[in-house]
Design a protein around this nucleic acid. Structure first.
Lengths: 343, 343
DNA sequence: GTGAAAGCGCTAACAT
DNA sequence: ATGTTAGCGCTTTCAC
């Protein structure tokens, strides 16, 4: 591991000054083709690699973007990361990933650490347990640009890249109704997050439209995990009231509920039709295959990164109005909701 | 977004010098408790955040580790990333993740980019298509420390954190034999990667030990995906020879094979017992549940990071002998291989 | 078209 | 115990 070559080394070897080398390397216009070629040749020969720390310090930029997600195992977030990284790479940025595990305290720590690391921007999907937003306010006042994705909150508008959750829920609920379901349940996440609130609202709107009953016990708001799904379904059996259609805001919850149904001997989709959310990999593997909403997460991540990079490149003088990118969900129909009612 | 406070600002406000502030902030011993307290108070008041770029430039370190994996969706790699990040965070490092998509060319690019980004060390799981290793040689000659994990190669020894693949395969194969299987197949990856070679060797050793037949058609070496698994199984049906036990080096391949068996009406595990590899999430969700080898990936990632950080902190003068961490696999028995032969 | 000089924010001798 | 000084590698005016 020998010492690395610097522009000064190149300069010395060529009998010119570091500043000329810097200009040559950066395609500065006022530099002769001859020296530019010489510099490039020498750089290659010395195996020169620009030092990002030095140029970053000088230019006040780190070349780093931060991205905070609840967990990287969740398919939707993994895909969003891939999208954001692709976009970032194209723009010459690296991405630092952090996870909140859906814990507010961890989220705070990540904000701290991202701040220290001098990221030039932050992409955030907030933790489900986050109900205070001072850290966002503070960041926006003092820090570099920030873009929310997937989960958002409304306190003060912000840049965001999100799914059209109302539409997603509309489509999923309509689909269940088309399949002949009339006694519908919706497993939701916390309603203080507009993401889930929007889905719940669309769900209720559909029920109202068709004159179907709205049962509070069939609309739990903390039902995102397999265990939550199981618990919900077991509760239904205890109360002796089983819905004939379930739209869950998470594939995991849908799976948990489905397994209980199967254990109790009910048929999916014939007796209970199901639609999940998130297009997790396992949904295509289980039997019956789980119908689901594909949240277009890769595109969501890509757009979030693009939005962020736009902010960064913008002269900070002219603060732009808050921009949002809203993606269209895609319903994926598999066996768990297909009853072949009409042909 | 106002200007950030620097140590110079703190120094000015306190009428001392930047270097005193620096020392106070870094817990340097020869500084009075009084000034230390004053500095800390002022730092808090001015909302000071250390600039990593500056200190990094000065100290010649970036605080960044690189990690290259084939793909982040694979459970084993996601877990390894989590492990490595936990370890890195504890040591004050951030981790930059990159994916090769199992393509040699992408791997080369990532090496380039990691070099430019001034990472202080690199953790690598090579692409399955990588058969030339010059970039490793070059990195090791010129770059910061490097640790291999999961997949390794033998050309020149290197630091590594790996599973005991021979043992994993031994255990899986023994388990199938215990369940009464005698006509065994093994779906493998490319044998130029010792990871797969070791598994294949253990598999063959077991067959030999028990005097079972070794059929070339039952030991494909490019069988890691769902499609590969399907293709293998379909081939078996075409040839009219079906194994009664399959150990696959990937849960995906196992799943593909299993689905074909089920489509053809064969019972798993009664007619064909199956064990996969990787402990993918879906394995617990499908029916029958897929027995598998848990590669202890999180620990593997953690140990890789620990090994790397040790190298980094070591005086580069004393080059240490190459260290390896070898993890014990865990067999997870689910329904796909459980025949209740004894008991 | 190229050079000289200053400095980004921080740290580490060395001095006092 | 604190200050002085120098410089990490690079970029950027501003001269010439």
């Amino acid at each position: 591991m020998k010492k690395k070559a610097t522009i000064t080394d190149i300069a010395r070897a060529l009998n010119i000054t570091p500043s000329a080398v810097s200009k040559a390397l950066n395609g500065h216009p006022r530099i002769s083709k001859k020296t530019r070629d010489a510099v490039e040749a020498m750089a290659a020969k010395l195996n020169y690699r620009p030092n990002h720390l030095a140029s970053g310090l000088r230019k006040g930029q780190s070349g780093l973007l931060g991205m905070l997600v609840p967990a990287t195992e969740i398919k939707a977030y993994a895909a969003a990361i891939n999208g954001a990284e692709a976009e970032a790479e194209a723009a010459g940025y690296n991405v630092i990933i952090a996870q909140s595990r859906d814990e507010y305290q961890k989220e705070l720590k990540v904000f701290e650490s991202m701040n220290r690391t001098q990221v030039e921007g932050l992409i955030v999907c907030m933790a489900s347990t986050t109900t205070r937003f001072e850290h966002f306010d503070k960041w926006e006042k003092e820090g570099p640009p920030l873009v929310l994705f997937d989960r958002i909150f409304e306190r003060g508008k912000r840049h965001m890249s999100v799914l059209d959750d109302y539409l997603a829920s509309y489509v999923a609920t309509e689909h269940l109704i088309e399949q002949g379901c009339t006694r519908l349940a919706h497993l939701s996440g916390p309603l203080h997050i507009p993401t889930y609130e929007n889905r719940m609202r669309a769900f209720k709107d559909r029920l109202k439209r068709y004159g179907f009953e709205e049962k509070a016990e069939w609309m739990p708001t903390s039902a995102l995990t397999i265990e939550d799904g199981r618990a919900f379904m077991e509760g239904c059996f205890e109360r002796g009231e089983i819905p004939d259609g379930i739209f869950a805001s998470s594939d995991y919850a849908a799976f948990g509920a489905m397994r209980v149904l199967q254990e109790k001997g009910l048929k999916v989709p014939e007796e209970v039709a199901m639609v999940g959310f998130g297009n997790e990999q396992f949904g295509a593997f289980i039997q019956p295959g789980l119908s689901t909403i594909d949240p277009e997460s890769e595109a969501m991540g890509r757009l979030a990164a693009r939005l962020l990079i736009q902010q960064i490149r913008m002269k900070s003088s002219e603060i732009p109005s808050y921009r949002r990118r809203i993606l269209k969900p895609k319903l994926i129909v598999r066996e768990s909701s297909r009853r072949n009612v009409h042909t």
